[in-house]
């Protein structure tokens, strides 16, 4: 059985998602990429992720619509990666149940450090 941490990147821009794929695969996470709300809900139902990096502006709707189903499926942490740096967006994301809101582009080292911290609780639960 593959016991690597499952990270889901929700991002409709292929140039950005390919960078995040290279980044997270380099630290041996199992990675899924969803480019729409529908794909996100499908991953949540079939293969619930441990950690999600969520874009808000998706071609078929608001990324926050996926937060409840993801949490219900057992996902522990949802980090929003957005181009919107305003206070209202931050409040809206936290109220919806997201763990944290980061404004793009987040330095790659910070993203890796963030995933390590957020997945630490999963590791200790597995041990």
């Amino acid at each position: 059985m593959d016991d690597r941490a499952h990270v889901l990147v929700v991002e409709d821009n292929e140039l950005v998602s390919s960078a995040l794929r290279i980044l997270f695969e380099s630290v041996n996470h199992r990675l899924s990429v969803a480019a729409s709300l529908a794909e996100t809900l499908s991953v949540a139902a079939q293969d619930p992720p441990d950690l999600v990096f969520l874009d808000l502006t998706l071609p078929d709707g608001d990324g926050l619509a996926a937060v409840k189903p993801l949490l219900a499926a057992g996902c522990r942490s949802i980090v929003v990666l957005t181009g919107h740096d305003d206070f209202e967006t931050r409040q809206r994301c936290l109220a919806a149940g997201c763990t944290e809101v980061l404004v793009k582009p987040v330095p790659s080292r910070d993203l890796l450090a963030k995933s390590t911290t957020l997945l630490a609780s999963r590791r200790s639960a597995l041990q």
Binding site: N13, L15, V16, S18, A19, L20, I22, L23, S26, G83, K104, P105, P107, S108, R109
Partner: peptide, 19 residues
């Protein structure tokens, strides 16, 4: 911001020796 994110993140991956 989106394409700039792609440019910067890909470049940081190279800088950090990930590849």
């Amino acid at each position: 911001r989106t394409p700039l994110t792609a440019v910067i993140t890909h470049a940081e991956i190279l800088r950090d020796g990930i590849l």
